[in-house]
Amino acid sequence: MNIFRLAGDMTHLASVLVLLLKIHTIKSCSGVSLKTQELYALVFATRYLDIFVTYVSFYNTVMKLIFLGSSFSIVWYIRRHRVVRRSYDKDQDTFRHLFLLLPCLVLALVINEKFTFKEVMWTFSIYLEAVAILPQLVLLQRTRNIDNLTGQYVFLLGAYRALYILNWIYRYFTEEHYVHWITWIAGIIQTLLYADFFYYYFQSWKNSVKLELPA
Protein backbone atom coordinates (compact mmCIF):
# COMPACT_ATOMS: atom_id res chain seq x y z
CA MET A 1 0.00 0.00 0.00
CA ASN A 2 1.50 3.29 -1.08
CA ILE A 3 0.62 6.82 -0.02
CA PHE A 4 -1.36 7.55 -3.23
CA ARG A 5 -3.53 4.48 -2.84
CA LEU A 6 -4.19 5.27 0.84
CA ALA A 7 -4.96 8.93 0.08
CA GLY A 8 -7.22 7.78 -2.78
CA ASP A 9 -9.11 5.37 -0.56
CA MET A 10 -9.49 8.04 2.12
CA THR A 11 -10.93 10.62 -0.30
CA HIS A 12 -13.24 7.92 -1.67
CA LEU A 13 -14.37 7.11 1.85
CA ALA A 14 -14.75 10.82 2.66
CA SER A 15 -16.90 11.37 -0.45
CA VAL A 16 -19.32 8.61 0.51
CA LEU A 17 -19.48 9.72 4.15
CA VAL A 18 -20.04 13.37 3.17
CA LEU A 19 -23.01 12.30 1.08
CA LEU A 20 -24.44 9.93 3.67
CA LEU A 21 -24.06 12.51 6.45
CA LYS A 22 -25.62 15.23 4.32
CA ILE A 23 -28.65 13.07 3.64
CA HIS A 24 -28.86 11.81 7.21
CA THR A 25 -28.52 15.18 8.98
CA ILE A 26 -30.38 17.60 6.74
CA LYS A 27 -32.84 14.90 5.64
CA SER A 28 -32.58 16.02 2.05
CA CYS A 29 -31.13 14.51 -1.09
CA SER A 30 -31.69 17.49 -3.37
CA GLY A 31 -29.09 17.63 -6.11
CA VAL A 32 -28.16 13.96 -5.61
CA SER A 33 -28.69 11.57 -8.50
CA LEU A 34 -30.38 8.34 -7.43
CA LYS A 35 -29.32 6.80 -10.76
CA THR A 36 -25.65 7.34 -9.97
CA GLN A 37 -26.09 5.98 -6.46
CA GLU A 38 -27.85 2.86 -7.73
CA LEU A 39 -25.08 2.31 -10.26
CA TYR A 40 -22.44 2.61 -7.53
CA ALA A 41 -24.31 0.10 -5.36
CA LEU A 42 -24.27 -2.28 -8.32
CA VAL A 43 -20.57 -1.54 -8.94
CA PHE A 44 -19.68 -2.57 -5.39
CA ALA A 45 -22.02 -5.58 -5.37
CA THR A 46 -20.52 -7.00 -8.58
CA ARG A 47 -16.90 -6.18 -7.70
CA TYR A 48 -16.97 -7.60 -4.18
CA LEU A 49 -18.74 -10.87 -5.04
CA ASP A 50 -15.87 -12.77 -3.44
CA ILE A 51 -15.71 -10.60 -0.31
CA PHE A 52 -16.19 -13.59 2.00
CA VAL A 53 -14.12 -15.97 -0.14
CA THR A 54 -10.94 -14.12 -1.09
CA TYR A 55 -9.15 -12.51 1.82
CA VAL A 56 -6.66 -9.75 1.02
CA SER A 57 -6.35 -7.88 4.28
CA PHE A 58 -8.42 -6.70 7.23
CA TYR A 59 -8.25 -3.19 5.76
CA ASN A 60 -9.68 -4.38 2.42
CA THR A 61 -12.52 -6.34 3.96
CA VAL A 62 -13.55 -3.48 6.25
CA MET A 63 -13.41 -0.92 3.42
CA LYS A 64 -15.43 -3.19 1.14
CA LEU A 65 -18.09 -3.60 3.82
CA ILE A 66 -18.21 0.18 4.34
CA PHE A 67 -18.60 0.87 0.61
CA LEU A 68 -21.30 -1.76 0.22
CA GLY A 69 -23.14 -0.61 3.36
CA SER A 70 -22.94 3.10 2.60
CA SER A 71 -23.93 2.84 -1.06
CA PHE A 72 -26.97 0.69 -0.31
CA SER A 73 -27.89 2.96 2.64
CA ILE A 74 -27.85 6.02 0.37
CA VAL A 75 -30.11 4.27 -2.15
CA TRP A 76 -32.40 3.20 0.69
CA TYR A 77 -32.59 6.77 2.04
CA ILE A 78 -33.52 8.27 -1.34
CA ARG A 79 -36.06 5.59 -2.25
CA ARG A 80 -37.59 4.66 1.09
CA HIS A 81 -36.97 7.23 3.80
CA ARG A 82 -40.24 8.97 4.66
CA VAL A 83 -38.75 12.49 4.67
CA VAL A 84 -35.69 12.21 2.42
CA ARG A 85 -37.51 10.72 -0.55
CA ARG A 86 -39.74 13.81 -0.83
CA SER A 87 -36.69 15.94 -1.67
CA TYR A 88 -35.68 13.68 -4.55
CA ASP A 89 -36.12 15.48 -7.84
CA LYS A 90 -37.25 12.64 -10.04
CA ASP A 91 -38.12 14.84 -13.02
CA GLN A 92 -34.56 16.18 -13.32
CA ASP A 93 -32.77 12.87 -12.74
CA THR A 94 -33.84 11.25 -15.98
CA PHE A 95 -30.68 9.54 -17.19
CA ARG A 96 -31.44 5.99 -18.34
CA HIS A 97 -29.55 3.27 -16.44
CA LEU A 98 -29.72 0.94 -19.40
CA PHE A 99 -27.71 3.23 -21.67
CA LEU A 100 -24.79 2.68 -19.33
CA LEU A 101 -25.52 -0.84 -18.05
CA LEU A 102 -25.92 -2.61 -21.38
CA PRO A 103 -22.75 -1.34 -23.11
CA CYS A 104 -20.74 -2.10 -19.96
CA LEU A 105 -22.13 -5.63 -19.79
CA VAL A 106 -21.48 -6.29 -23.47
CA LEU A 107 -17.97 -4.84 -23.21
CA ALA A 108 -17.23 -6.96 -20.12
CA LEU A 109 -18.39 -10.09 -21.94
CA VAL A 110 -16.13 -9.29 -24.90
CA ILE A 111 -13.08 -7.64 -23.32
CA ASN A 112 -11.95 -9.37 -20.13
CA GLU A 113 -8.92 -11.20 -18.82
CA LYS A 114 -10.69 -14.50 -18.21
CA PHE A 115 -14.13 -15.65 -19.30
CA THR A 116 -15.46 -16.72 -15.93
CA PHE A 117 -18.51 -15.40 -14.09
CA LYS A 118 -16.47 -13.76 -11.35
CA GLU A 119 -14.00 -12.20 -13.75
CA VAL A 120 -16.69 -10.86 -16.11
CA MET A 121 -18.58 -9.37 -13.17
CA TRP A 122 -15.39 -7.77 -11.87
CA THR A 123 -14.62 -6.30 -15.32
CA PHE A 124 -18.23 -5.11 -15.63
CA SER A 125 -17.86 -3.29 -12.31
CA ILE A 126 -14.69 -1.57 -13.56
CA TYR A 127 -16.42 -0.37 -16.74
CA LEU A 128 -19.56 0.66 -14.90
CA GLU A 129 -17.65 2.61 -12.27
CA ALA A 130 -15.98 4.59 -15.07
CA VAL A 131 -19.32 5.99 -16.25
CA ALA A 132 -21.54 5.76 -13.15
CA ILE A 133 -20.96 9.45 -12.31
CA LEU A 134 -22.58 10.60 -15.59
CA PRO A 135 -26.18 10.85 -14.32
CA GLN A 136 -24.87 12.95 -11.38
CA LEU A 137 -22.91 15.27 -13.69
CA VAL A 138 -25.91 15.65 -15.99
CA LEU A 139 -28.10 16.47 -12.99
CA LEU A 140 -25.60 19.09 -11.80
CA GLN A 141 -25.46 20.68 -15.25
CA ARG A 142 -29.21 20.70 -15.49
CA THR A 143 -29.99 22.22 -12.10
CA ARG A 144 -26.82 24.37 -12.17
CA ASN A 145 -27.36 25.32 -8.57
CA ILE A 146 -25.07 23.15 -6.51
CA ASP A 147 -25.01 23.13 -2.73
CA ASN A 148 -21.61 22.91 -1.06
CA LEU A 149 -21.94 19.31 0.04
CA THR A 150 -22.90 17.95 -3.36
CA GLY A 151 -20.01 19.92 -4.87
CA GLN A 152 -17.62 18.48 -2.27
CA TYR A 153 -18.96 14.99 -2.90
CA VAL A 154 -18.17 15.17 -6.62
CA PHE A 155 -14.84 16.90 -5.95
CA LEU A 156 -13.75 14.16 -3.51
CA LEU A 157 -14.75 11.44 -5.97
CA GLY A 158 -12.67 13.10 -8.67
CA ALA A 159 -9.72 13.44 -6.29
CA TYR A 160 -10.00 9.71 -5.49
CA ARG A 161 -9.75 8.89 -9.19
CA ALA A 162 -6.76 11.18 -9.75
CA LEU A 163 -4.95 9.66 -6.76
CA TYR A 164 -5.61 6.14 -8.03
CA ILE A 165 -3.87 7.01 -11.30
CA LEU A 166 -0.84 8.23 -9.34
CA ASN A 167 -1.04 4.96 -7.40
CA TRP A 168 -0.92 2.92 -10.64
CA ILE A 169 2.03 4.94 -11.92
CA TYR A 170 3.81 4.33 -8.61
CA ARG A 171 2.97 0.62 -8.67
CA TYR A 172 4.05 0.31 -12.29
CA PHE A 173 7.54 1.47 -11.40
CA THR A 174 7.88 -0.28 -8.04
CA GLU A 175 6.20 -3.63 -8.73
CA GLU A 176 6.22 -6.07 -11.59
CA HIS A 177 5.70 -4.42 -14.94
CA TYR A 178 2.39 -5.92 -15.82
CA VAL A 179 0.24 -3.75 -18.09
CA HIS A 180 -3.29 -3.55 -16.67
CA TRP A 181 -5.02 -2.20 -19.76
CA ILE A 182 -8.60 -2.74 -18.61
CA THR A 183 -8.20 -1.03 -15.26
CA TRP A 184 -6.00 1.76 -16.56
CA ILE A 185 -8.06 2.77 -19.57
CA ALA A 186 -11.35 2.62 -17.64
CA GLY A 187 -9.71 4.57 -14.82
CA ILE A 188 -8.34 7.27 -17.09
CA ILE A 189 -11.71 7.69 -18.85
CA GLN A 190 -13.41 7.94 -15.47
CA THR A 191 -10.99 10.63 -14.30
CA LEU A 192 -11.35 12.63 -17.53
CA LEU A 193 -15.11 12.82 -16.96
CA TYR A 194 -14.38 15.01 -13.93
CA ALA A 195 -12.11 17.43 -15.82
CA ASP A 196 -14.90 19.83 -16.78
CA PHE A 197 -16.36 19.79 -13.28
CA PHE A 198 -12.92 20.37 -11.76
CA TYR A 199 -12.41 23.39 -13.98
CA TYR A 200 -15.53 25.12 -12.69
CA TYR A 201 -14.94 23.92 -9.15
CA PHE A 202 -11.49 25.58 -9.00
CA GLN A 203 -12.78 28.71 -10.75
CA SER A 204 -15.47 29.17 -8.12
CA TRP A 205 -12.96 28.41 -5.38
CA LYS A 206 -10.42 30.90 -6.73
CA ASN A 207 -13.01 33.66 -7.07
CA SER A 208 -14.71 32.54 -3.85
CA VAL A 209 -18.12 32.46 -5.47
CA LYS A 210 -20.79 29.80 -5.33
CA LEU A 211 -20.19 26.90 -7.70
CA GLU A 212 -22.39 27.15 -10.77
CA LEU A 213 -22.09 25.09 -13.91
CA PRO A 214 -22.92 26.58 -17.29
CA ALA A 215 -26.08 25.24 -18.88
Partner: peptide, 10 residues
Protein backbone atom coordinates in the same frame (compact mmCIF):
# COMPACT_ATOMS: atom_id res chain seq x y z
CA UNK B 1 3.93 -11.77 -13.18
CA UNK B 2 0.64 -11.77 -11.34
CA UNK B 3 -2.23 -10.77 -13.60
CA UNK B 4 -4.44 -10.25 -10.58
CA UNK B 5 -2.18 -7.82 -8.82
CA UNK B 6 -4.61 -4.89 -9.05
CA UNK B 7 -7.34 -7.03 -7.47
CA UNK B 8 -6.03 -6.00 -4.08
CA UNK B 9 -7.44 -2.54 -4.74
CA UNK B 10 -10.91 -1.32 -3.93
Amino acid sequence: IDADSLKDEL
